[in-house]
Design a protein around this nucleic acid. Structure first.
Length: 218
DNA sequence: GACCAGGCACATC
DNA sequence: GATGTGCATGGT
């Protein structure tokens, strides 16, 4: 109980320090919910800068739309998302996801996100190319469901502050946030955004960095 | 030129 | 289950 209380305190303090330093992050950086989902796939193991170029290309060709993206050729799609890397794999993943979205929900965001969190997460994970982080990004940032996204930054920051060890699983890390914070979509949204911002702006290593707003975190 | 980036699936042991 | 590997561009 004591342990749990201290984790809760540490997380709260962490968010408070980040928020004071960076301000509200206004995530996810996308124009539409569908674009959030596309971006979530494109950003797999890739820097956001490169994803932005890919998304821009898709926008120019009017392909940020499930029906049009579904009918474009693989070759064309791959050429447009090339800057995001892994373009052949990601073309397949985008197509897999869009096929699922059209087949199961007729391309309707409303029906997709009318589903409850748990079954929808399960469904998303059954799509080849959508893993836990991608599914959770879609659920939180497009679906506005209260689930915490775990990524490389999240793992690193928790390790840096001794809240996990290096072999902690995705689920373990996710539970640290989910079980110690109020289930608040806005908080989950901005907390994860702050973590990414902090990782991008300051150090990317496990060791602490002096400029980091969390450097004085006890 | 090496190393890394907001992963994931698949093969192999 | 754990561990290794392929996928690929662009920045540092």
């Amino acid at each position: 109980m004591k342990r749990k209380k201290s984790i809760r305190k540490k997380l709260t303090e962490m968010y408070s320090l980040l928020y004071s330093h960076f301000g509200w992050q206004n995530w996810w950086p996308a124009k539409t919910k569908f674009e959030v989902m596309v971006g979530a796939i494109l950003t797999q193991n890739t820097s956001w800068k490169n994803v932005e170029r890919a998304i821009k290309n898709l926008r120019v060709h009017n392909l940020i739309n499930p029906f049009r993206l579904h009918s474009v050729s693989d070759k064309k799609c791959a050429s447009l998302i090339k800057p995001a890397g892994y373009f052949n794999v990601k073309t397949k993943r985008l197509k897999n996801f869009v096929s699922f979205f059209l087949r199961r929900y007729n391309g309707s965001l409303k029906s997709l996100f009318a589903q409850d969190l748990k079954p929808l997460r399960h469904e998303l994970l059954s799509v080849n190319g959508i893993g836990q982080e991608t599914a959770d990004s879609i659920l939180l940032y497009a679906g506005e469901k209260a689930i915490f996204v775990v990524d490389a930054y999240t793992r690193r920051i928790l390790m840096r502050h001794n809240l996990i060890n290096e072999n902690a699983t995705y689920e373990t890390i996710q539970n640290i946030f989910m079980k110690n914070l109020p289930r608040d979509v806005k908080l989950f949204n901005d907390f994860h955004a702050q973590i990414v911002r902090c990782g991008n702006v300051y150090c990317r290593r496990i060791s602490r960095c002096e400029k980091c707003p969390l450097s004085n975190l006890k």
